[in-house]
Design a binder for these strands. Structure first.
Lengths: 142, 142
DNA sequence: CCTTGTAACGAGAATCGTTCTCAATAGTAG
DNA sequence: CTACTATTGAGAACGATTCTCGTTACAAGG
């Protein structure tokens, strides 16, 4: 029997610092927009870094569970990820270029809670996302 | 050459009254909750009615484009459909049984428009859905 | 009714995003 | 340096949805 006798380091899953995790974290922190796992994969290998597709999916999923990423689903069913602030907020996403702005809406929170209550619902959560054309894209399409 | 000479009846695609379309319309009008194409398919054949899966998908899609159905995406990626009123509204969906209540929120509409504007976005639309446990399910899980 | 043109069907193949499998690899604590 | 095991990655497996294409059956005209 070796190792696994000291009880100090929390040596569970999800904490090793690997090359591929570093790459993903870096790329996410440079991203302004929501991106899909497939996109991340393509971008990485486009810049010469070799990372398995399964790893991209696994890591993105893990980071989401750890609360490090926000998730969104595109109209055609792809799951999109983005590094966001920790406080509760919503997104204003550009339909054209994907740029995203975090916005908050105290009014919405209250309305959601009240509407749920009014119908006898409990444990009410809400999904609120705004889509539009950002200033730049609006100008470009004019 | 026969037919296709009179110019009165709008005999284009999407208007034939078939057995399968009747079945789907009927089933949808009896549904209180959002349901997936797969569920509709299973339910139909469970009640002895034979309808092709592709037809279910096609019809549901067509009805949606015609504005007869509202669409929602479940957490695991399935597209869910429901027959709803024509006016703009949002949904309060039970996480457990799927029952859905249509709710409106003038406050949200205003907030959304304003938030978009404030950041220079144009053509802003919003996605707002509420999830919770309906009265019955809340009671059951207590 | 019967004919006809063609919208609609349906079975099965094809897509596509995502997840799973499992042997090989590589952090890391001691 | 070594052993332990978390991670990785290639490819198979999945599940929802879409496409293909020969067959079926509305529905308008005769």
């Amino acid at each position: 029997m070796t190792a696994r006798t000291s009880g100090s380091a929390p040596a569970g899953p999800g904490r090793r610092d690997t090359r591929q995790r570093r790459l993903l974290r870096d790329q996410l922190s440079r991203q302004e927009a929501f991106v899909s796992a497939q996109q991340m994969y393509d971008d990485l290998r486009a810049s010469g870094d070799r990372v398995g597709l399964a790893t991209v999916y696994r890591t993105l999923q893990a980071m989401t569970e750890a609360g490090e990423l926000d998730v969104l689903r595109s109209d055609d069913g792809e799951v999109l990820y983005r590094q966001c602030g920790p406080q509760h907020h919503h997104h204003l996403v550009c339909r054209s270029c994907g740029v995203t702005v975090e916005v908050d809406g105290p009014a919405v929170e209250k309305w959601a809670a009240k509407a749920g209550e009014a119908h006898g619902f409990t444990e009410v959560t809400h999904v609120v996302e705004l889509f539009g054309l950002c200033a730049a894209c609006s100008r470009a399409s004019r």
